[in-house]
Amino acid sequence: MTPVTTAAPRAATKAPARRVYAASVLLLSVWVLGPIYLLFVNTLSSPEAVNSFPKSFIPQFDLGSLAFFAKFDGMLAALGNSVIVAAMTMVMSIAIGAPAGYALSRFEFRGKELFRLLILLTRAFPLPLLALPLAVLFIRTGLDDTTFGLALVHTTLAIPFAVLITFSLFSGIPIELEEAAWTLGCTRLTAFTKVVLPLILPGITASAIFAFVISWNEVFAAAVLTIENRTLTAFLLQKLGDAPIHLKFAGGFILVTPALIFIFAVRKYLFAMWGIANR
């Protein structure tokens, strides 16, 4: 008898909290997945269906819009540029960000806290303010309209994340593991390559992919700093301004899909990075 009478009120008090939780999850999912689903449906519908009313919520699997893009002049070059810029961003942001993350995690130095804050603050600085001086500087140095120049800008955007993510990765590795390696015949460098690196490699990969996605999604700097060698985002922004709506949907679809796939692939590590679930 006793367990029943005590269990009932507890369940009753828990139920509303559970319902609020479930509702929040549902709301968030609809908020994110709704537009993506509509994008998906409209991309795979014929132009007539996209423009007609009422809307259908079931895709027709009409590949006309996507096929149009495949043959679109300059499309493949822009896609190639996007991949090149994103790959360079990925490499540079880890090459620069990971040592900074290691230093933040392992060494005590004056101004460490300020440094961490400043890293975050770079994200608060509006890019449009920088656009004109940056464009002038790039033209002077000959970096304008090059994939490398754009990758530099994207790297500065991705570095704060690379630093903070690798900082938390390194902090998750007990210093004793390194110290044990030193006492077992390692130098600082060999201890790093033999002990630390294997342990953080998955996290570094995730953080690299995150940098890739940041570059892939970036449109403002890409549009301002390139003319001939546009990345996919800048290219679509320019070409689709006056395009019919079904092509805009298809363009959006092409942009969103790779980013989604990448983020999905590394989601486990992103959770770990933000400290939601360590390991």
Binding site: E179, A180, K194
Partner: peptide
Amino acid sequence: PKDRGIAMVFQNYAVFPHLTVFENIGFG
């Protein structure tokens, strides 16, 4: 540390998680 002829045992063991017990013992 590596040139002092010492070996150390740490409070939290510091066993390398990415290596087997064999490779841990054989590390040095």
